[in-house]
Write a protein that binds this DNA or RNA. Structure first.
Lengths: 227, 227
DNA sequence: CTAAAAAACGAACGTTCGTGCTATTACACA
DNA sequence: TGTGTAATAGCACGAACGTTCGTTTTTTAG
């Protein structure tokens, strides 16, 4: 009878298996959605039995929550951490946006931005899952806002700018690029988002802030303007 | 007890029923997604039998496609048609964006923008449903682009502007507002999107174009929209 | 008023879902 | 090496899914 009541499977082999499961779960969920992430499907893909897999999680909701947090870790190490290697202020702000776009474009998750997909799947479905997703996306928005404010404090962005408004716009461009890429495979959308963000940053940058942005390459999708 | 209503020899009764079903289907689907739109659930809500309802559609996919087209009709009469009452050019362009935001904010569909939700649900699920959604969203994007180009031809927007880029940005703001509203109930997001769009229109407007835009009220933080 | 046609029904099918049991295997430590 | 426990498998369940089928009710037409 393996009926030890208060057990916390921490270190042993099960921990590794659990992590394996979750890595695959993130991929499936980002493509098929968190509800389409089926225990049977996950088990098949991992060559495990449903019940053997299920034992690692008390319920489907637990599996979903664990999957979300795994996706969050991936996002942190793929976007946040590299951006934080850049210096505080404009450089970091720009790198945050750039890494986000690269994160989606690079196809780390086959279904585009995990959280954008999960958010729209659960936005009208109350519960822990929805709350966690909202929390994480709020972390991200907050990080954008903070980076904007820090850029202002460093004298690199005009203080006339409302950080909340600017963060909203940047986040929108990122959602828009993700949307166009997912629905149409439109790679150019990332370029458009990048351009939109950069244009915005340049417009509000102080002289010292502007030097931290990549040089403006004028040859964008120009429609044959004779010069 | 089906009442025959007025002496209007419109359609066979089945046609009316079908339309009834689809109206409810749009509501459910916009909240629960097109896959969450379950035949049993739909039947329950309509006090019909599953099989009786199902007979109106050959398959679930047919039901989904019909639901999509019903949502499209709703969108056309709620957004497109009113915008086309405005004069061609800047006025119409602005009204298109404004009506879109109002359409979502007004909660015509309880789940926010039907197509934004459907797109992210089906974007990695090939088939007729996905194709139809992509087609409709492309109609919308094309309409935005066309309105921008017409504004340029009317001399109301600078011809330096790339219509594709601007349409991408406007669409992104709309997606961003929808996202914030759905996930956080953030009503202010619509104001932010409105402001972002207007700011761009003003920046690129010619003198004659600027007169067609609403006056800039500087107190943007104010909400106080008692209707 | 009646008979054909259309619409709606009820029950059942085969799947798949999440989730419990119980039995079996693999591994850590003696 | 033996043993206890953690990890996994096998099996079964009830519910919900889309779908089919034969029947009954309602609407329409002559």
């Amino acid at each position: 009878m393996p009926r030890t009541g208060a057990a916390e499977p921490v270190k042993a082999k099960g921990g590794r298996t659990r992590q394996n499961i979750l890595e695959v779960a993130v991929d499936i969920a980002s493509a098929e959605g968190l509800e389409g992430l089926t225990i049977g499907r996950l088990a098949t893909q991992l060559a495990m039995s449903k019940s053997g897999l299920f034992a690692h999680f008390g319920s489907k909701e637990d599996l979903q929550l664990a999957t979300i947090d795994t996706a969050r870790s991936r996002f942190i190490s793929d976007v946040i951490r590299p951006a934080f290697e850049a210096e505080i202020g404009m450089a970091r702000l720009w790198k945050l946006c750039e890494r986000w776009l690269g994160h989606v474009q690079g196809g780390v998750c086959s279904g585009g931005c995990f959280f954008a997909a999960a958010a729209s799947e659960f936005d009208s479905r109350p519960g822990q899952v929805r709350d966690r997703i909202a929390e994480i996306m709020n972390e991200w928005l907050g990080m954008l806002r903070k980076a904007i404010i820090e850029s202002q404090q460093a004298g690199q962005i005009s203080t006339d700018v409302d950080p909340i408004q600017l963060a909203f716009e940047f986040n929108s461009f990122e959602l828009g690029a993700n949307w166009a890429f997912q629905l149409y495979g439109d790679q150019q959308a990332f370029g458009r988002a990048r351009e939109a963000i950069l244009e915005r940053l340049r417009r509000h940058a102080t002289r010292s802030g502007a030097t931290l942005l990549p040089p403006a390459d004028k040859q964008r999708r120009r429609v044959r303007t004779k010069r």
